[in-house]
Design a protein around this nucleic acid. Sequence first.
DNA 1: CTAGGGTTAG
Length: 750
Amino acid sequence: MYSSLISIAKKLSSHEHLKQLHAQMILNSLHQNSFWVSLLITKCTRLNAPSSYTNLVFNFVQYPTVSLYNCMLRYLSHLGAHHEVTALFQKMLRAEVRPDAFVYPILIKSAEKSGIALHAHIFKLGYICDRILSNGIMAMYAKHGPIEVARQLFDEMSDRAVADWNSMISGCWRWGLEIEALRLFDVMPQRNVITWTCMVTGFSRIKNLERARWYFDVMPQKSVVSWNAMLSGYAQNGFKDEAFKLFNEMLDAGVHPDDRTWTIIISSSSSHGDASLVELLVGMLDAKKVHVNPFIQTALLDMSAKCGKLEAARDIFDELGTHANTAARNAMISAYARVGDLTSARDLFGQMPERDIVSWNSMIAGYAQNGQSPQAIELFKQLIEVGHPKPDEVTMVSALSACGHLGALELGNWVVDFLSKADIKLSISGYNSMIFMYSKCGSMKDAMRIFKEINLRDVVSYNTIIAALAAHGDASEAIKLVSKMGKEGIKPDRLTFIGVLTACSHAGLIQEGRKVFESINCPSVDHYACMIDLLGRAGELDEALRLLENMPMEPHAGVYGSLLNAGRIHRRVELGELAAKKLFELEPNNSGNYVLLSNVYAAASRWKDVERVREYMKQKGVVKATGWSLAEYDGKIHKFIAGDRSHERSKEIFGFLSKLRQKMRQSGYFADKDCVLSDIEEEDKEEMVGVHSEKLAISFALLVSKPGSVIRVVKNLRIFRILGTSNGTIWPAYDEGMVYPYLKDKTTKC
DNA sequence: CTAGGGTTAG
């Protein structure tokens, strides 16, 4: 009677088969039989059956035996449902089913993965003498800390098995006790493959690939796990070529890659973004008839997405169906975010049954990288409100970057404050994003402070601070830093030179700029654009033109843009026209170019030509991009669009603006053109085009400000600090450094 | 059913 059941059980390889078997069991009235249900649930574990189904099967049984409980606990633990493990264990105790020796290793493993302390207490009560259990408990402390407790248990052991040494060594590596791990390795009486593999992963983790490789090479035998460990070491540290080389060596050595090997290889080739590599790998998987599990599928999904094949990624995602775990969903979210489809990303994010920190980070970064900083910050605040999962460095990098793009210093300070209170450890990239935030918000002092405080800097740290100095026109400091980075053994890259050249340009340092330009090994188009900008701004327009004509590559829009701007500043209409002509070809829809050309004519008082450009724009259907400004007030960002009345206090703002103007006119006050509130003559034109966004922002700032408060209005590089309404003084915040030199000394009183 | 290796975010 059971033979047909056994034959079904043997070939179980899909969820469908599970259902078939269960149906047969019901037919044979075996769905109450602990033995058969155990068998089925063991299969469920292996095939990652959904918990809804497995729970159904389990709940059929009225009086489960100990071993059936064990199977179910193992299933839940495998699934990562550690709270359910605890619950089921308690249910088992309530049902007066006496736990046998097999249940504890399952519970310990679950406790180990989840760090649920409750379990540990249960075992400590009397199972410490069993060597497997004592190892389990020690391993738990080694993994989750405190490592000292693990050490104490280890020292108390009467006779230590290799497994105990291995757990302890692994724990030492995990908690950064490199020296102790090495010492234990040296003094232990016996070592096995696992011990050696521990050393390989240990050294990989601290990025010492050479020593990791040394242990890998000298180990007496290797298992697939050892190969995987070494491969993963290379992959995680960005040594893709070495990973591939080792993978080939592995195949040559006749070692069969397992599913984890494939996962590592696929994910490490993801960053290549090379479509042909996808085909190669998929071909290999086919040829070797590899069973593609959800891990491999997720890696494939991610790789397809990174090669720009969103459709293929979505296909894999749909194929995964119920097997799509959090990681797979996260991969899909970032795939959408990468192409800018934030709606789909957010939909998926909203539908997730469980969200881990990667889910939040993917979504927040998605917003931050697609120019939607307010949404990024909004989501970050939501995460803090929910309280879990705990934000990590990646979260903070995105949040800080969003604050930086908005110029929101108040928010930025809040994020930094949160970060230190939550005790989130930062690496170089975390500090770099802090430097970025401060410098974008105009707090050069803080940016410099962080830059000096961190003892490890990389090329990104330097590029960030140099770009900031460039924006402030502090060229001498920028040049100093380049030579400093040389002393620290950091090689300047493309972006470094762009930064220094920009700095020279803003400070008008032609000689220094020339020297820097000549020192660049193989200047790119961007470097030429910077150099032409530098020469052009400084008035050396003929030299700029010569440089342009002798470029070894085709100039891009940036190069002509620099020339056009130079033509405007120095009223060289013919150069401006030349540049504009090229720009209209290269970027026919960029309204900025048309505006710039009309400014060239305006600067030369050729009003007819100004009109002609405007006509030309209309004729071509080019719409001038709407201006916008931001004001940060009370931790919130207020956005103002030119001529727009959508702000909730719009009425008051417009009223305030007109009062302000009256006051200015009465006092006969007149300031020059760069002061936003001063260009009264433009008022009539505003009737047609709408009020400039910056005026709205500043009016708002003045309206809400209390004496002594600081309100920041940010647009491009201009930050206004409001000292109070009593005398209504505003000025560009050059005290914080964030202005071009030509804005200096432009203080307005209203 | 002790100890080593996997997917996703910057």
